[in-house]
Write a protein that binds this DNA or RNA. Structure first.
Length: 825
RNA sequence: GGCCCGAUGGUGGAAUUGGUAGACACGCAGCACUUAAAAUGCUGUGCCUUAACAGCGUGUGGGUUCGAGUCCCACUCGGGCCACCA
């Protein structure tokens, strides 16, 4: 028997599998038509960063690989593709710094990742590998844009956008984090530009409803819901006062979720973004006009961060105008205030300082009356308000509605004023801004005629190639403007004076449909054939980091629903089941980062201990979804374990198997372990499956050393097969050494446990007296249903009698095969 | 501020979903082997106390139950996401 030489073993089998093309070219396989029999496993699309594979990637890839191998061994047709989210800012920023074209850095990074992932033994199907920066891929990203354009779901709009001065590009609202650019952390400012949008809001209700169809973590669904932000309330029409010099009757419409507080309205506030739309300027005194202009200008220059400071300091300007409260005809003063958001609701709010914290703060600052219309929860009813009380309760000071509950009032008030108040719903979700003033992305397939009118690029001109004669250095304008070839191409194909769209698409567009392309990644005629989509989609299991919960999923679901409506897909939701992996933390318990110097390099671990050890260690660390700190001595422990497995399985192979009681006990343990592992893998409980394998080896070692137990070859093969999903290299080595088979262990069937062997002969049942364990009795397993006999034995069991002496038993509980509890007075 | 998740030995974690708390592993201690060390093997290891029995013990306080790490109520701490969304 040889020693466990992990490097030799792993490199040997890696080369063999590669030569055989194991698990390659699976997309086109027949036999996957049956839904019951196909399993599509998907790993979150990865950005090939220059720093290579991270131990965090290893965890989720290994988890999926275990599922892939286990499902294959159980007779499923498994589709386990791989690809690269290759467009994006880091490669472009690197190009700006070094002059190396993004295409080159990206290719190098992909090569590194590919080598590392293969070395790990991840059984991806590399024949379907794709990269979003490849024209054969982005041609179909552009095609998707054109389909949306045809249906009016891709449109050009002008508006205030988030602008990152460092990245020199527009950001989606979703990419602004705490007023800062998600990528580089620079303070984001507001800028007005013409941009392309996808009309995701057309699908807002379906994006909510579809969540009922999928098996996702509840928290993830909740975040999707929150992002869509459906909010039910009412729209209230406040008519401008005649006294406001208004010629015809005009009104300000507010959205509120608390129409029950409408008698408490003491001011209206308009957002700066929306102020001009209401055309109120002409109604104002010259003095007021000047004041308001100054305020509007200042507001437009504020960064997100500055507006946040306003959370404490609520600024605003009184317009001198009044509007009439429709429920009681009271004149309400109108203010301009930047705490009101332009993009939500109607951009106007009704201020109810008594029952809203923000309105209260504003009222305090501007000396506005606070009028309480919900009865206070606490007794001291006469006490003046010192803070707002936003709770629901009993409505007071509200005319005929006084005495109703908030809920009743919210129903009754709109009914009573049908002209001025209507029930309404608003959403937080806004259309998806996809234009980026960057180079390394898919060009938006639009050309402009000499009058500046946009036209779609003809489908026969796809892929609408990303030009290469480009100056990457940021100028505040799209880098594609520097390409001569791009303009020449446009004029040649569309005519003199025509110009291309210079912006590229948000990389989220690329990465929100890749799972469809995998099914037919080399198709040049369509984004994927209907047959291939039908065969593999939807995705059965998706493993994705918690950082992609909101946007990527929302956009992917939007594309899926759109393509379904166009007749390309037959399902509503792309990802049936999804789970999130946790984070692998540094040995110090903190998030790994270069600056902290706590980053673990998987290559070094593989060199020292092997890929099998790295895989098994990461699976053994704890539950897949938890954050776990790295522990190098525990890694060494796994290596010791695999060495023991190697030595034990291969030692004594030439000896005659024994049939002693010990051997039987070890074999029983083996089948119990097999049962446990078979149940744990589909439940993603890899850590306990490995613990069970360790328990088995402990029993086997002990049985061999102490009692000379020798297991038959058949059982040793079972062990090799059980290890196959976790430690594919070692498993192959053991299997091939034992049986010298032509076919890989990974092509064998998952072994079935012997149901008779799994059942224990005797069952240990703890005996409690008043809920405390005082003894344990061993019962023949055939007796577990004989309650009378078991209770009788329990009462006389050693250690129990003394607790029953002189006491009266008032209750006897027996839970079948589990526990006995004798309750005494 | 809102929502979500979590808290179990020195450490990572397990616990059949209300039924033996601490599986499995790391670490540590002792022993064996060795001239010595490493490696390996064996033994022990929740706390307190002991010769033993007993007692205590899953963040804190209460509750439901024959029985609570698990369910309910209140709180403390830690983490994540969102955040002036009317």
């Amino acid at each position: 028997m040889s020693v466990y030489d992990h490097t030799k073993i792993e490199e040997k089998w890696l080369a063999k599998w590669e030569a055989e093309g194991l698990f390659q070219n699976t997309a086109q396989t027949d036999g996957a038509q049956n839904d019951q029999n196909k399993v599509y496993l998907l790993f979150a699309f990865a950005y090939p960063s220059g720093s290579g594979l991270h131990v965090g990637h290893v965890e989720s890839k290994t988890a999926l690989d275990i599922l892939a191998r286990f499902n294959r061994m159980n007779g499923k047709q498994v589709f386990f593709p791989v690809g690269w989210d290759a467009f994006g800012l880091p490669a472009e920023n690197y190009a700006i710094k070094t002059g190396t074209p993004p295409a080159v850095t990206t290719k190098n990074a992909i090569n590194t990742f590919r080598r590392q992932i293969k070395r790990l033994g991840i059984s991806y199907d590399w024949d379907n590998e794709l990269a979003t920066s490849h024209p054969g891929y982005y041609q179909w990203t552009q095609w998707l844009f054109l389909q949306l354009y045809k249906k009016g779901l891709a449109y050009q709009g002008k508006g205030m956008v988030n602008w990152c001065p460092s990245c020199q590009t527009v950001l989606a609202n979703e990419q602004v984090v705490n007023g800062q650019c998600e990528r580089c952390g620079t303070e984001v400012i507001q800028k007005e530009m013409t941009q392309w949008f996808f009309k995701i809001t057309d699908y807002k209700d379906e994006l909510i409803a579809g969540l009922d169809q999928v098996d996702w973590p509840a928290a993830t669904k909740q975040q999707q819901l929150h992002w869509i932000g459906k909010s039910e309330g009412a729209k209230v029409d406040f008519t401008l006062e005649a006294g406001s010099k208004s010629k015809q009757s005009r009104s300000l419409v507010c959205f509120t979720t608390r129409v029950d507080t409408i008698f408490g309205v003491t001011f209206l506030a308009i957002s700066p973004e929306k102020f001009e739309e209401f055309e109120l300027m002409e109604l104002l005194t010259a003095e007021k006009q000047a004041e308001i202009k100054t305020y509007l200008e200042a507001a437009s220059k504020k960064t997100e961060e500055e507006r946040k400071i306003g959370e404490k300091d609520k600024t605003g300007v009184e317009t001198g105008l009044f509007a009439m409260n429709p429920v009681n005809q009271e004149p309400i003063p109108i203010y301009l205030a930047d705490y009101v958001l332009g993009g939500y609701g109607t951009g106007v709010v009704m201020g109810v300082p008594a029952h809203d914290a923000r309105d209260y703060a504003f009222a305090q600052k501007h000396g506005i009356v606070v009028k309480r219309v919900i009865a206070p929860r606490v007794e001291a009813a006469d006490q003046a308000l010192s803070c707002p009380e936003p709770d629901y309760g009993i409505v007071v000071n509200s005319g005929e509605f006084s005495g109703l509950s908030s809920q009743e009032a919210m129903a009754a008030i709109p009914t009573a004023f049908p002209k001025a108040i209507e029930v309404a719903t608003t959403y937080r979700l806004r259309d998806w801004l996809i234009s980026r003033q960057r180079y390394w992305g898919a060009p938006i397939p639009i050309v402009y005629d000499p009058q500046g009118k946009p036209h779609p690029v003809k489908e026969e001109h796809l892929p609408w190639m990303l030009p290469t004669d480009v100056d990457f250095n940021p100028t505040g304008e799209s880098p594609l403007k520097s390409s001569k070839e791009f303009v020449e191409r446009t004029e040649r194909l569309y005519g003199q004076g025509w110009r291309p769209e210079y912006d590229t698409m948000d990389t989220f567009v690329d990465s929100s449909w890749y799972y469809l392309r995998y099914a037919d990644s080399r198709n040049e005629a369509e984004f994927a054939s209907k047959e291939q989509l039908q065969k593999w989609l939807p995705v059965d299991f998706y493993m994705i980091g918690p950082e992609h919960i909101v946007l990527h999923l929302l956009y992917s679901r939007f594309f899926t629903k759109f393509l379904r409506d166009q007749g390309y897909l037959k399902f509503d939701e792309p990802f049936l089941k999804m789970r999130h992996q946790g984070m692998i933390l540094g040995p110090d318990g903190k998030k790994m980062s270069k600056s902290k110097g706590n980053v673990i390099n998987p290559d070094q671990i593989i060199e020292k201990f092997g890929a099998d050890t790295l895989r098994m260690y990461e699976m053994f660390m704890g539950p897949i979804e938890a954050d776990k700190p790295w522990d190098i001595s525990a890694v060494a422990g796994i290596y010791r374990f695999l060495t023991r497995v190697h030595d034990r399985v291969l030692s004594g192979v030439d000896q005659t198997p024994t049939n002693s009681e010990t051997t039987k006990a070890v074999r029983q343990k083996l089948h119990q372990t097999l049962k446990k592992v078979t149940e744990d893998i589909p439940a993603l409980k890899f850590n306990t499956a490995i613990a069970a394998l360790m328990g088995l080896m402990n029993s086997w070692d002990e049985g061999s050393v102490k009692s000379g137990a020798v297991l038959p070859a058949k059982d040793r093969v079972f062990v090799a097969q059980m290890f196959a999903p976790f430690a594919p290299f070692l498993a192959e080595e053991l299997y091939q050494t034992l049986v010298q088979a032509k076919r890989s262990v990974h092509l064998q069937s998952w072994p079935a446990f012997d149901p008779e062997l799994v059942v224990a002969q005797t069952t240990i049942i703890p005996v409690q007296v008043n809920g405390k364990v005082r003894s344990r009795i061993a019962i023949e397993s055939s007796l577990v249903d004989n309650q009378a006999e078991i209770l009788a034995r329990a009462k006389t069991a050693e250690g129990v009698a003394r607790w029953l002496a002189d006491k009266k038993i008032i209750q006897e509980i027996y839970v079948r095969g589990r526990i006995i509890n004798l309750v005494v007075e």
